[in-house]
Structure formats: structure tokens, C-alpha cells
Amino acid sequence: MNGDTFHNRNSSSSTLSKRNSTERKGDVTEMKKKSASATATEVGGYGRWLGNAYFMKWRMEDVFGVVKYHPIPCIFAASLLFFMGVEYTLRMIPASAPPFDLGFIVTVPLNRLLAAKPALNTLFAGLNTVFVAMQTAYILGTFLIEGRPRATISALFMFTFRGILGYATQLPLPEGSISQ
């Protein structure tokens, strides 16, 4: 608005209010239809929150389009699965080969505490599992429910290179380690 033009709001306000009134009545009817179909969806086990999820609107073309148009995140996802398998089946270096690892030296008091109190060690392991599960739920939720892929791509990138570095930098466990 630049001052050269004058907008008369009074002449169109009655038309606008009639149109809004009609639209509101239509919205109520549409909402009733949607709530009836939502209850049918809830019976199927999806519920309202999952019915509006981003991935529920995908078609097969969309799934294949992800592979076609976004190959790098797909490579990260495949390498994540590969390195998970490699990392969990990897044989540890024997304790007879002593490396210099600052992490083991700094955490000697914590290692002694956890060795003396196995219940505390189990508690910390459980908390770690809960933390990882919460991260995973957030990452999958932002992608599958909200349709925001940034957190998923970041996690796939991070865990892929974590797997590569974990495989490339194997260290033997010290003889008194709890993880043996």
C-alpha cells in the first residue's frame, strides 16, 4: 500500500463475512467426514497421528525416487547396515598386545568403580540403551512422520564414518576390562 490508492474495506466486508460463514459450515461438514474416516483408520491400528504421517502418503514411485534422486543417503543407509554387522562380529585384538590408549588411562578410576559395583555398570549400560533408543525414535520420527530428512541424513553420515573408523582403528582390550 503506497498511499495513492484507497481501499474501501466496508464494501467488501459483508461479502467476506458471508463467504467465511459458508466456508466454516463446509469445514464443519468436512471435519465430520474426516473424523468418521479417522475412526475407521484407528480400527486398522494406525490412529490419527500415524494417518497424517509423511511416509503414509508415499507411493512406490516415491520410494524408488528416493533411491534414484538421492543416492548418497541411500549409500549411507546401506553402509550403516554393513558396518553394524562388521562391528558386532569383529574379533577383538588379544590383550597381550598392549597399545597406548589415553581413554583407558584416564578412565581407570571409573573402571575400578564399575568393576566393584556391577549393578552400577548395568545401570549405565541401560541408560545408554535408553539414550540411543530415544535418539533413534527422534531421527526416524522427524523423517517418517514429519518428512524432515536432515536428522536422518546426518545420522546415516555419522554412523557410516563411525563404522569405517571403528573398523580401521581396532584396539585391544586391557586385561582387567569389564567388556571382556
Rank of each mutant, 00 (worst) to 15 (best):
55 F>W: 06
55 F>Y: 04
55 F>A: 05
56 M>G: 11
56 M>K: 14
57 K>G: 00
57 K>E: 01
58 W>S: 04
59 R>G: 14
59 R>D: 12
60 M>I: 13
60 M>D: 09
60 M>Q: 08
61 E>M: 10
62 D>P: 03
63 V>N: 04
63 V>D: 05
64 F>E: 10
64 F>L: 14
64 F>Q: 09
65 G>Y: 00
65 G>R: 03
67 V>C: 11
67 V>Y: 10
67 V>M: 10
67 V>P: 02
67 V>T: 10
71 P>V: 02
71 P>A: 01
71 P>H: 01
71 P>M: 03
72 I>G: 03
74 C>L: 12
74 C>N: 11
74 C>K: 08
74 C>S: 11
75 I>V: 06
75 I>M: 07
76 F>A: 10
77 A>M: 13
78 A>I: 05
78 A>E: 01
79 S>M: 08
79 S>L: 08
80 L>R: 12
81 L>V: 05
82 F>S: 07
82 F>I: 08
86 V>Y: 05
87 E>S: 02
87 E>Y: 02
88 Y>G: 14
88 Y>H: 15
89 T>I: 06
89 T>R: 12
90 L>W: 13
90 L>H: 15
91 R>C: 09
91 R>K: 13
92 M>V: 15
92 M>P: 13
93 I>T: 08
94 P>H: 03
97 A>S: 14
97 A>D: 15
97 A>P: 07
99 P>K: 09
99 P>R: 09
99 P>W: 11
100 F>Y: 15
102 L>K: 06
105 I>V: 15
105 I>H: 09
105 I>F: 10
107 T>H: 08
107 T>R: 06
108 V>F: 15
108 V>Q: 15
108 V>T: 15
109 P>K: 03
109 P>H: 08
109 P>G: 09
110 L>V: 12
111 N>F: 01
111 N>G: 09
113 L>Y: 05
114 L>M: 11
116 A>H: 09
116 A>C: 09
117 K>I: 13
117 K>P: 10
117 K>R: 13
118 P>F: 00
118 P>C: 03
119 A>Q: 12
119 A>E: 13
120 L>W: 02
121 N>P: 00
123 L>V: 05
123 L>W: 00
124 F>D: 03
124 F>H: 02
124 F>Q: 00
125 A>H: 05
125 A>E: 04
125 A>N: 04
126 G>F: 00
126 G>I: 02
